[in-house]
Design a protein around this nucleic acid. Structure first.
Lengths: 266, 266
DNA sequence: GATCAATGTCCGAAATATCGGATTATCGCT
DNA sequence: AGCGATAATCCGATATTTCGGACATTGATC
């Protein structure tokens, strides 16, 4: 078996306009490296980074040294793995504070998680994918790892049904890749069902789904709308499917309330 | 007047090992750029970035394009300024979640800010400087901009008196630069006073200061200690100096409680 | 203790990314 | 509209950084 290189998408991106020689700019290598760590969501050894991003080993060592010095990365434990460093948190905070809607959303999400005690999130679209922008775990200590900044197919989520609110059937078909209607377990969401969910959600001012991405989880979401009434974000709760119905209704009210405040603030 | 270049420290760092020609690696330029934006805490125009970091204009344009594409930066408004982009938030979240103490501290800080309604922070040392790692604004809407990740002289802060808890007078003299004992308004903190504060704080299990960095602000902090009893972080409140005394006592109790939990968790 | 694997360092050559400066586009103001 | 100033793009040359591969180091296994 030849020493074929298996690169992930980040590597592909990084190569970008690179000529056939395989030589790339340091900055492109670094971007691939960081995207790789983000997708991994765990510290990685340098040799593995080199293999998985298609970057020469000596180059990775060189760059990692630079990045560790700048605190962009941190070497973990004594096992020689590296992961994001504090500088990323500082820059990330600056970003959050600089975006008005997100700064306000943070207050709401924190408030909801604190008062209700369940995991609350703030979600938006990124291109034709859904992603969690803010995540505040509830008192329950399961689901430790947040999936902040990880792209997910729109139909897999409750919020997704609100976020494409403003589109007609044709637009949606053109916007969401067909394969995204297939759930992780292989089941397929038929378009009519999705469109019906959508209409019902717009009508009711919230949406609830159960057992979409995983069988035992219920998701409730309320829309944040701009002045034109377009859904630009959602606030939602992620709870066990067996959560008491009254409790769920209280949560939906809380969501509508918070989402309303953020819609006003626009 | 000659076209003398005024570079900030980041630029100096970036030049690093650069040879006398002034040519530098792209990655070093990028690090300087990001540090510059962080210090600025506001969007900047490309021309200004070039001037302030000592990077050639054409290089900055080139790099900014790359970074915008990677969502590390974002062009703001229509005024052509750039600032941090969402990718920084995602990487920063990954960092926060990967550090056990910080992840737990976030819950406490959010809880305190929510329940008490005043600005709560989680602080640590970075070298011989103090810095805010987590900041959660209270209900009061003043002091919008958080100073997350900005280094501050240790003697300027309440928490600082706890964080060097474990050092003797000589150690402290060697550790904290003398100029750091001079407050922003020019007043000087005499060492004896600092040492007395420190001893009293360790005794009481908390520290309170008023009018240090600015005349109308009171700071209260409680120590997070590791298994050896060493103060590795603090949790604190930042409130107006005229805050009711009973209220302040309640806040100190809440701080001690949270700090205690984090100390246990080690 | 010897062997093998994995990790990290070093170095020269060549491909190319950075840089300066000139050019073009955009904007604000009278 | 015309003008000046500022912002952004373009382009060729060369100083430099990436890259491959050899070498050193560490550590685990038998």
């Amino acid at each position: 078996m030849t020493a074929e290189r298996v690169m992930d998408k980040a590597a592909g991106q990084a190569m970008g306009q690179a000529t056939a020689t395989g030589r790339a700019r340091g900055i492109d290598r670094v971007i691939a490296l960081m995207e790789h760590l983000h997708r991994l969501r765990a510290p990685a050894r340098i040799a593995d980074i080199a293999r998985d991003t298609g970057t020469p080993r000596s180059t990775v060592y060189e760059l990692v040294n630079t990045l560790v010095e700048a605190r962009w990365l941190e070497t973990r434990d004594e096992d020689g793995t590296v992961f994001f460093g504090p500088a990323m948190h500082y820059y990330g905070s600056d970003y959050l504070n600089s975006v008005d809607l997100i700064r306000k959303a943070r207050r709401e999400v924190n408030h909801l998680a604190e008062v209700i005690g369940e995991t609350a999130q703030f979600c938006m679209l990124d291109g034709n994918k859904y992603l969690v922008v803010l995540n505040e775990p509830g008192r329950r200590m399961f689901r430790i790892s947040s999936d902040i900044g990880i792209k997910v197919p729109i139909p897999w989520t409750a919020s997704g049904r609100l976020l494409v609110d403003h589109m007609g059937p044709d637009e949606i078909r053109a916007f969401i890749p067909t394969e995204d209607f297939t759930l992780p377990d292989g089941r397929r969401i038929v378009e009519e069902e999705f469109l019906r969910d959508m209409a019902a959600a717009r009508e009711a001012g919230y949406v609830r789904t159960t057992g979409l991405v995983d069988r035992f989880t219920t998701c409730m979401a309320a829309p944040v709308r701009d002045t034109q009434g377009r859904c630009i974000a959602t606030i939602c709760f992620v709870v066990p499917a067996d959560t008491d119905a009254d409790q769920q209704n209280a949560m939906i009210d809380a969501l509508k309330d918070s989402a309303g405040k953020l819609s006003m603030a626009r």
